[in-house]
Amino acid sequence: MFPAPLSLLSQMENFTYNSLTLQLEGLSVTKTNKYTVFLFLLLAYTFILVANVGIVILIWTDRNLHQPMYLLFCNLSLNDVMGNSLLVPRVIADILVPPSERLIHYYECLMQAFTTHMFGTNAHTVLMIMALDRYVAICDPLRYTTVMNRRMVVTLTLSAWGSAFVLVAVLLGLTIRLNRCRTLIMNPYCDNPSLFKLSCENSFISNIYGLTFTVVLLSSSIGVIILTYSKITAACVINKNKSLNSKALKTCSTHLILYLIMLVSGFILIILHRFPQYAEYRKISAILFNVVPGSLNPLIYGLQSQEIHRSLSHMFHMKKAAPTL
């Protein structure tokens, strides 16, 4: 037997070293509770789709809701649908599959990682531009229609999605360059920390950028929220207008609740990533980070908005009256 050419050996080594087939650890469920978990996630995902898509359709079809506040909220609903649709169905399917058969292609894994980080980053950027909208509406109401015109809404929307895209693309770009020597993703789905943990190379740069990325994003969003709400509080105290204060309380409390839900669920996930001994809790929180905000956002916003209530009641009254015509 002649020895294989060096180039062939190199190709074989690269193929086994950077395997394109990865294994997802998934959720640790027993035979007795896997159907309960499956049903819970299926119902949650169905509700997320119906509620968020329904909100978007309602806002776009009702001209009375073509206001900056609701148009910007559509970004949050679209983000929830996108983030959950590319992650939750795969997690649901893996629950019914033995751990050894939870295989995923590397490129699909990259798409999942990109989606989950876009979901988290975009939630921050969208909630920041929604905070700016509330600031202008309450602190400078006479110029609100001039400042928050259609062009400004489009600009803010593109800046929110564009900045999130660039930040996440760089984050994953630094991870993709690393060679992989492991194949087990220790998570229910792929994300950047799980991907660079597959590498045996020095991931110092990826870690530093990931840490900087997180600090800058959280500092920016928390800073914008504190600044805008401080201005709004000052405006309410100075004006002493009951009508203005009531409007500010309703719209801002809704926005603040959405932000706090997203922030707390994100902080729990980030903290648990630093403690390997709580791996199961981290995996559960990773799922809830997508499911909880996506489920509560349309519910909280819909319950607090009188305009959405009015539009829904008008739509249902028309449906009831239609058979009698």
Results as ranks from 00 to 15, higher is better:
K240E: 10
Y45S: 11
D62Q: 08
T324Y: 11
S206T: 00
L171Q: 07
M152V: 14
H273K: 02
V56F: 09
S77F: 03
H317Y: 08
I300K: 06
S159L: 15
T116E: 08
K319M: 09
L312H: 01
I257F: 05
S85K: 15
F114K: 14
K242P: 12
Q304I: 04
Y70S: 04
S10F: 02
V292H: 05
A93G: 01
S203F: 00
I185K: 05
L325V: 10
M1E: 02
R150L: 03
V91F: 07
S77C: 15
L260H: 02
I225K: 00
V29Q: 12
T183C: 07
F38V: 05
G294Y: 05
V291Y: 05
L272I: 00
T30N: 08
E108Y: 14
L49I: 13
M118N: 14
L49Q: 12
V81K: 11
P68V: 01
S285F: 03
P293Y: 08
I57K: 11
S28Y: 12
S28H: 06
I185C: 07
L158Y: 09
L174C: 03
V88T: 14
F119T: 10
S313N: 05
V50D: 08
P298R: 08
V88R: 14
A322K: 05
F73A: 11
L296N: 05
Q112M: 13
R282T: 01
Y259A: 06
F40I: 10
N18R: 04
Y45R: 10
H117L: 09
H273G: 00
T155L: 14
N192D: 03
Y107I: 15
N290E: 09
E101G: 03
I176A: 12
E13T: 01
